[in-house]
Design a protein around this nucleic acid. Structure first.
Lengths: 144, 144
DNA sequence: CTAATTGCAAATACTTTGCTGGCTG
DNA sequence: CAGCCAGCAAAGTATTTGCAATTAG
């Protein structure tokens, strides 16, 4: 009943309203990286009394609290995903479909810290997105 | 007299107007990563007859032509820099000052391609930004 | 009961675009 | 001289905010 993100809100003593609970659930259930409109749509499907302004306000609150993270991939709108301290990852965007694939590479993480250190900095955050075309055409595609 | 970016425009047979020449010069001279307003300011300082709309249109034209590249660092506005095929680099942002430092790391480049390949993609582009705090406090700071 | 939260609509910030006269090639 | 380009202001997006009513703790 209590979604992981709702629990995170409770842990941080955020005042829980029906709207926030619904938005928390939508974000917890999301397996993709929805933008504000998408979160709003999904939230309204659960409870119609949720305005877009509240979605914006809530997403900002959650992000400021470190509960979720925002990304700007190809398009103009910010997209969101739950923060999971045990599952840091970066993103690869399929430029043909827009699909976002998550990945993690230990070597890459270490290398970034090494580079920052070499430049005289301590790494506090990073953003890495790879944009790629699938090597193999989709099965059934016999264009070649 | 002819800035490198103006030359690139000529090579691509873009119609050169006074405005485009000025904007090309501003971008060629920029050692930082100015946003649209900043480019406009600098352009107007050279020739007052340049509107913001033209700056937007020209930056888009240059970007679509591959002559410049845009980035979205911390803030909301796109920032621009000349494309230099002989000088690919990524960016490290000093979170205390907002200063942008350019760097290049061969190993990192290769690793990204390897990761994309492992996931079944051919890397067509990437975006990497490191956010860091300076390791040494500013000289004169004796907080430690 | 008090302070935070919400919905609504208006306001903002950034960027794009329709139109008309002007300039490039 | 045909077609692209610039300026201007109006229109678009994406996001934020003021205000009065509502609700959580």
């Amino acid at each position: 009943m209590t979604s992981p993100i709702e629990q995170a809100c409770i842990d941080k003593s955020l005042k829980m309203t029906d709207q926030r609970r619904v938005i928390a659930r939508v974000l917890s259930d999301a397996e993709d990286h929805p933008d504000v409109d998408e979160v709003h749509h999904r939230a309204v499907a659960i409870d119609a009394r949720i305005s877009l302004a509240t979605v914006y306000r809530t997403l900002r609150l959650f992000e400021d609290s470190g509960i979720i993270q925002s990304h700007v991939f190809g398009g103009p709108r910010s997209r969101y995903e739950a923060t999971d301290d045990d599952d840091h990852h970066d993103h690869l965007i399929n430029v043909e479909t827009g699909q976002v694939i998550e990945f993690f590479d230990e070597e890459l993480e270490g290398l970034q810290e090494k580079i920052a250190a070499r430049l005289g900095f301590r790494l506090v955050d990073h953003r890495l997105e790879l944009y790629g075309k699938p090597v193999k055409p989709a099965p059934g595609n016999n264009k070649a």
